[in-house]
Structures are given as structure tokens and as C-alpha cells.
Simulated assay, not measured.
Amino acid sequence: MPLIINGENSEFCYEYHKPAQLHFGNTKVSGWKDVEITGESIEVDNAYNGSCNMTIEGKTIEIGTGNKHADNPYTFKSVENFDLISTDNDKKSNSINFPYTLRALPNGICDFIVIDDALKSTKLYRNVGEITLNGSENWYNFTDLSDIHYRTMVIPSITKGSNAIYRCTHFVTSNPVLLKSYIYLGSSVLGITFNLLKEDFPTLSTWTDFLAEKAAENNPVKVQYLLEGPIITDLPYQAVKQYYPQTNIFTNATVQPILKGKFMIIDI
């Protein structure tokens, strides 16, 4: 509840607008409350001076037009190498650089960074792997799958999860048999599986030659996939500042991440 002095709401704090609590017995009379705000940018009203918890979630967009296929690929753009900026919209600001790529899969699973103000820690959680193909990989199990498809697999250096979710630049992902080449969605083995249309890729060498050609054109086939488990990396901790009386937090990333912040604000 607010602190009322001379009939007006008053702010209860110490020093220069830092959070404090006033209790009567076990009952809070005045002080702060916690709020959680999510968005590509965040605006916090009635903020104290201090720091906050923040989670930064990755995102990947696919850029292209028409039906995706070997000769009409899409490109991936993800959150990468960005500054997280907090400001009071006047004279105060703080910036933290994150020289990392944060990806996301179509089902919403993503890489993310957690900045914990209480523990004074920053951790990077990687859930999405990416492999860039050039034809030199150890392709195996080139088998006659059906009247229209051959099947072949490659094992990425960072282990994928079983029944992995995929996205691919040059091929669609699918479970059913299609009259086109596609990356097999939901493969339960360690390999990333392609079902190749026989009329396009009648031999394994035609497939690896295609991959080498696209790589030489600086347009390589890329696959993003679900990792077997998260890879967690400790990063240097830097506080995400919040400013009295208002704080705006945003990034300068080309592809904007999702920000999830937890803030102490004045309970008025």
C-alpha cells in the first residue's frame, strides 16, 4: 500500500531512490513490489535506482519468397552481437555487449541468456545447434528408401536430440513422403536425415557435389536443430541498471530478441 503523508501518496526509499520497505509488525506498510514485463523493448514506470533480473531469448527468422527448394533457398537471420541498453530517457544509460548468436526453432525452443541480479551471475543456455554443409561431411546410410526417394544422414559434431526439430535453408522439413527432397522431421537417430528425390540426386556424389557447389557460391545449405541437452556457459556478470523514475530497456540487434525482466518498483 502507499505511504500517505498530508493526504498525499509518498515514496518510501533510502539514499537516492533505492528500494526500502516499511513494516508494521509483519505487515508491509510501504515499499517496493516486484513486476515482470516482457517485450522486444521494456518500459518501467515508478522504478527505483538499482538493478534487475533479465532473460534475453533468441529468435530466428527465415527470409525468402515462394516455395522453398534447392534452387530457391531461404536465409536465416538470428539475434546476434548486440548491446542491451537501459536508460532513464535523459542523462543516464548503461550498455552491455553480448557477442553471441541466439537462435530459435519453429516450436519456440531457443537459446537464451539469464542475468541474475541476486546471484550476480550471467549464463548462456544453448538449445539450438547449427551445421553448415559443404559436401565433405561423412554422409552414410545412403539407402533406397522408396520409388521416389533415397535417404542419407550426417552426424553433427554437437549431438542433436532424438526426434529433433529442424529448420533448413534449402529444403522443407516434413514427416510424410513428399514429391520433393526434404529434411526428415522427427528422426530418432543421432544423424540429421535427408530424403532426396531420386530424379534430382540419383547418387550420393550428386548430393555431395550439390552441397560443395552451394558452399562455393557462398550460399551453403544450413540446418538448425534441437540439441540433445542445453550447453550452459558462464559469462562475465554485468548489472542491468534500472533508473528512477522511469527505465527503458532495449537492444540494437537487427533481429530483436524477447526481453523478460523482473523489476522492483515503488508501490504507490
Rank of each mutant, 00 (worst) to 15 (best):
T193L: 08
F76C: 03
T152L: 13
L119Q: 13
T169M: 06
S162N: 14
T132L: 06
I192W: 05
Y48E: 01
Y166F: 12
T132M: 08
N163V: 00
L133S: 05
N195P: 02
I266R: 14
G25F: 11
K198L: 05
P176Q: 04
D200C: 04
T206C: 05
D116Q: 07
I115D: 02
N218V: 09
F210A: 10
K214C: 08
I249K: 00
F142C: 05
T159D: 12
Y16A: 02
P230M: 11
S95M: 03
Y225E: 02
L211W: 06
N127P: 14
H149I: 04
H149F: 07
K77L: 10
F112K: 13
S187I: 02
T169H: 07
P245N: 09
L204S: 06
V172D: 04
F142H: 13
T65G: 14
T203R: 08
L227H: 03
Y14E: 11
K123E: 12
A20R: 09
I266D: 15
N195M: 09
T251E: 03
I165V: 15
K180C: 14
N107F: 04
R167C: 14
E80F: 02
F171A: 03
S188P: 04
P245E: 05
N195A: 03
S205W: 00
E57I: 10
I258A: 00
A118S: 12
D34N: 14
L102Q: 04
T203Y: 08
N138G: 08
I4K: 12
T65I: 11
G64Y: 05
D200V: 09
Y182A: 01
Y225S: 04
E130N: 06
N248E: 10
A253L: 05
R103F: 01
K68A: 07
F24T: 03
H149L: 06
G186M: 04
Q238P: 04
M264N: 10
S188C: 00
L102F: 03
P2I: 01
F201M: 11
I265N: 09
P245V: 03
F263D: 08
K28F: 05
Q224E: 15
E217M: 13
L227A: 08
N97A: 10
N107E: 09
I4G: 04
V79E: 04
K68V: 15
F201A: 12
T159F: 07
L145P: 03
I63K: 12
I266F: 10
G50L: 03
Y244N: 13
N94K: 06
P202K: 09
